[in-house]
């Protein structure tokens, strides 16, 4: 049976600005046809002062207490995110074998998705530096049962539980890489201010960007969260972007567009900093997102997020393309 949005979801928004900050869409580069690196808008880790900081603070205050408990746990988990590498470096003669070892280890720690790619400047926010050679992207699935009543305290708690889990996995993995004598740093917090996690995960072959602005994976839909480890450990980049048929469905499907209580989801792709892609209207989304502990309606109504539906859906869409 498909996902059904509950009838009593909050409608309208309460937060408002008397003097709104600079448009988040403008900061994000909506309508721009030339490439530039992304700039921060929301979710700050204190390295910058952001135009929408005041709303971000209120988001923290009205957030579900369950989410706050997991945020506190994640801060603790991430204490191991950085540190000096061991003085003796383990020689790596076979980067492909090392990559396999890292992936097996990440999965044994609890990652559902693991991929490796080369660090590129476009993955890093403007004005920030991440001087490492490789990125190990990590995805962890959310419990679909706990997400079924989005947006509520249970779903908000589940989102932050998964981030705390990612924080633990990424930190442990980075610590183990440093024990091998190679520099490594974990990013396991949605507020971690240096990196854009979605383009990295796309490059690692996790899935494709969906109409709702989140990543869609063949096996987990959008029902998962991302983190990563950056490192200089010699690795082999064997992962590549995948085509699972997301665009074929998203161009026709309007499930997220119709479900969004504030009409924030564009039905057509938009130009954003030189790329034509699916985009969610920040200025419409962010008030509702902040008031409902992160909302997540769009990712749960997505047909790809239905457990077990992805592989079948992908196969059907791709075979249709061949036949057509």
């Amino acid at each position: 049976m498909g996902f059904r949005l509950r009838d009593d979801i909050p409608r309208g928004t309460t937060f408002a600005y008397r003097n709104p900050p600079r448009s988040g869409n403008e900061i994000n580069g909506l309508g721009e046809r030339t490439f530039r690196r992304a700039a921060h808008v929301f979710h700050n880790d204190s390295t910058d002062s952001l135009p929408w900081d005041a709303l971000d603070r209120l988001f923290s205050y009205v957030n579900s207490w369950k989410a706050v408990l997991y945020i506190m746990k994640n801060i603790w988990n991430l204490r191991k995110s950085t540190g000096p590498p061991a003085p003796v470096q383990r020689a790596v003669s076979d980067p492909a074998a090392m990559t396999r070892e890292v992936k097996v280890r990440a999965r044994s720690l609890g990652a559902d998705l693991v991929g490796v790619t080369t660090m590129k400047p476009e993955y890093v926010y403007a004005g920030h530096e991440v001087p490492y050679r490789y990125v190990i992207s990590i995805g962890v699935q959310m419990n679909r049962e706990r997400m079924k009543n989005v947006p509520d305290d249970t779903s908000a708690g589940e989102v932050m539980r998964v981030y705390a889990r990612i924080g633990e996995i990424a930190s442990t993995l980075s610590e183990e890489i440093r024990e091998m004598g190679w520099p490594a740093r974990a990013y396991g917090n949605p507020n971690s201010g240096d990196l854009l996690h979605i383009p990295i995960a796309v490059e690692c072959g996790f899935g494709e960007l969906g109409k709702h602005g989140s990543l869609i994976s063949r096996d987990h839909g959008s029902n998962f969260r991302l983190g990563c480890v950056v490192t200089d450990l010699p690795l082999a980049v064997e992962d590549a972007p995948v085509d699972i048929g997301v665009d074929d469905l998203c161009t026709r499907c309007t499930a997220c567009v119709r479900a969004c209580p504030v009409d924030a989801i564009h039905d057509r792709k938009q130009w954003v900093r030189g790329t034509e892609k699916w985009y969610v209207d920040f200025d419409k989304c962010i008030y509702y997102f902040s008031e409902t502990s992160g909302c997540a309606i769009c990712i749960e109504v997505c047909p790809w997020s239905e457990e077990g539906a992805g592989p079948w859906l992908s196969e059907k869409l791709l075979s249709k393309r061949v036949a057509g």
């Binding site: 309460t14 600005y17 700050n44 900081d53 709303l55 209120l58 507020n191």
Partner: peptide
């Protein structure tokens, strides 16, 4: 609830 009239910053999480 006017965001501009919100109280001072909290410790960040």
């Amino acid at each position: 609830f006017y965001v501009d009239e919100a109280p001072s910053p909290r410790p960040r999480g």
